[in-house]
Structure formats: structure tokens, C-alpha cells
């Protein structure tokens, strides 16, 4: 199955055992700090740190490579465009018409690009090491209504199913001479119309059957559901959470009061 549909890598590392709520709060705090800071060095440290966390958590090189393949083109594009369209301060290394390349805008472009990579990797620390159900349970424990959590879980569950149905309908329509890859983009989009209609009908039927299946398994019987594997907040989770919150508060103060990480270089 594609990684896109099945992000979780089963395991029993410290990262896997960590409470999903702690991981989620870490993602929020780290993202906030990364968005507030502009320093190339901070971004570099965050990116390297995220790799180390992933590797120490037993996440495979294959998955890490997958994230790199997904983010690297965007990172390169952002770095290049930034340097071209945002004239930098200070002495120019190259100046030609509107183009003005300086060490400052190169550092700024690199910092923005690395920030995208760091944000992605920090998010994937959570997604690669947390099973879908633990992820939802964590969010529900943090206050998300269970029905929302269930909806999210089902959306993730049915992604590959719907992709399979799309492929099936496309193949069936192709077998009846429907040309999906011919002509301009508008023509191609119109050619997909019969598939979209069939997909919609299938999705509606699946949703109806699903609602019957949910009802017949006592969904909504109790206001408070229980869980086969309830979340256990261990002392280590508490310690890590306190560390994350303290570090975030300290870095926030340093950023806002002392201007830490304010400049790209």
C-alpha cells in the first residue's frame, strides 16, 4: 500500500511509546517556534534534530527518504525564487537589472526553504510513530469531539478504498473507449466526468451502508465511550511534556525579548 495512505510505521521505540498527546503538543510548539524564527542556523538545527528523532525512534530510511522526495523540490523552488524576487541587503555578490543576490537573501531563502522541510519532518515525527487510532484517541483526549475524530479516521481508512474504486471505474470506462489522456486539460477534465459521477454514487452508497453498520454496532449508545487500549500518561510523558513546554516558553521569551533567531544569519 502507498505510504500516502499508511503513514504509521509499527514499532516499539521510545517514540512509539510516547503518549500521542505529548507528540501532538511537541508538533504544535515546534511549529510555532519555527514560524516565529528566521535564522538559518535554527532551521538547520531543527531539520537535523528532526532526522535524529526519527532515526532514534526506529523510523526507516525509506520513510525519511519519502519525506525528502516530497519536500525537496518545494524547498529548492522556494530557495531559488526567494533569492530572485527578494533583493537582499548589504553588499551584492551579483547585481543585474532587478536581480540582486547578497549573502543575506541567500541565507534568508535557505532559511525559508529549510523551515518548510523542518515543519514537514516535525509533523511526520507524529504521523510515522502514532497509529491512526492512537492519533485520534490523542486528539479526542485533547478535546476534539469523538464524532470528528471518527470522521477523520474513516476518511483516512477509505482513502485507499476510494482510490481503488476510482481506478476500477477508470479501467471500466477505458474498456468502453473513454479517452482520459487525450486532448487539452479541459477536455481531459470533461472526460473524467462519468468517472466522477460514478464515484459520487459509490461514495454515497458506501456512506449509507457505513451509517447502518455504525448504528448496528451501538454507535452513540453512551455519551462516554471507553477504549480497548486507553491512553496511559506515564511519568516519562509528563517529564517530556514539561521539558517541551519549558523549552518552548524559554525560546519564545528569547525570541521576543532578546531577538534570538530574528535574523537569517
Amino acid at each position: 500500500m502507498s505510504l500516502l495512505y499508511d503513514l504509521y510505521q509499527p514499532g516499539d521505540s521510545w517514540l512509539h511509546r510516547l503518549d500521542p498527546r505529548v507528540k501532538f503538543i511537541f508538533v504544535l510548539c515546534a511549529s510555532l517556534l519555527l514560524l516565529l524564527m528566521r535564522s538559518l542556523w535554527v532551521m538547520l538545527i531543527a531539520l537535523v534534530g528532526a532526522q535524529l528523532i526519527l532515526l532514534s525512534g526506529g523510523i526507516s530510511w525509506r520513510r525519511i527518504g519519502w519525506v525528502w522526495r516530497m519536500t525537496l523540490p518545494t524547498m529548492v523552488l522556494i530557495a531559488v525564487l526567494w533569492v530572485i524576487f527578494y533583493p537582499g541587503e548589504g553588499q551584492a555578490l551579483l547585481s543585474w537589472r532587478f536581480l540582486r543576490i547578497t549573502p543575506y537573501n541567500i541565507a534568508e531563502g535557505l532559511a525559508v526553504a529549510l523551515r518548510i522541510g523542518a515543519l514537514a519532518f516535525i509533523l511526520f515525527i507524529w504521523l510515522f510513530s502514532t497509529s491512526q487510532s492512537a492519533l485520534i484517541r490523542g486528539l479526542v483526549a485533547l478535546g476534539l469531539p469523538y464524532t470528528w475524530g471518527l470522521t477523520l479516521a474513516m476518511a483516512l481508512r477509505y482513502l485507499p478504498t476510494m482510490a481503488g474504486i476510482f481506478q476500477l471505474i477508470s479501467d471500466a470506462q477505458r474498456a468502453r473507449a473513454l479517452e482520459l489522456d487525450q486532448g487539452n486539460p479541459l477536455r481531459r477534465a470533461r472526460a473524467h466526468l462519468p468517472i466522477v459521477v460514478a464515484m459520487l454514487i459509490t461514495a454515497l452508497r458506501t456512506a449509507q451502508n457505513l451509517s447502518l453498520a455504525l448504528a448496528s454496532r451501538a454507535f452513540g449508545a453512551q455519551r462516554k465511550r471507553t477504549h480497548l487500549h486507553p491512553l496511559h500518561f506515564r511519568p516519562l510523558d509528563g517529564l517530556l511534556l514539561a521539558g517541551i513546554l519549558l523549552a518552548t516558553a524559554a525560546l519564545l521569551w528569547a525570541r521576543l525579548a532578546l531577538g534570538l533567531g530574528q535574523e537569517p544569519l
Binding site: 497509529s131 487510532s133 474513516m154 481508512r157 453498520a213 452513540g220 449508545a221 465511550r225 480497548l228
Partner: peptide, 18 residues
């Protein structure tokens, strides 16, 4: 609709608040 077999079987009893 659940991610694992055991969670699928547990879904109903969980709804009962057991």
C-alpha cells in the same frame, strides 16, 4: 472501518462504555 482487526471487534463494546 477501523485501522486494525482488534479495534474493529472492540468498536461495538467500546460504544457500550464497557
Amino acid at each position: 472501518f477501523c485501522p486494525t482487526v482488534e479495534e474493529e471487534v472492540a468498536f461495538g463494546p467500546e460504544n457500550l462504555g464497557l
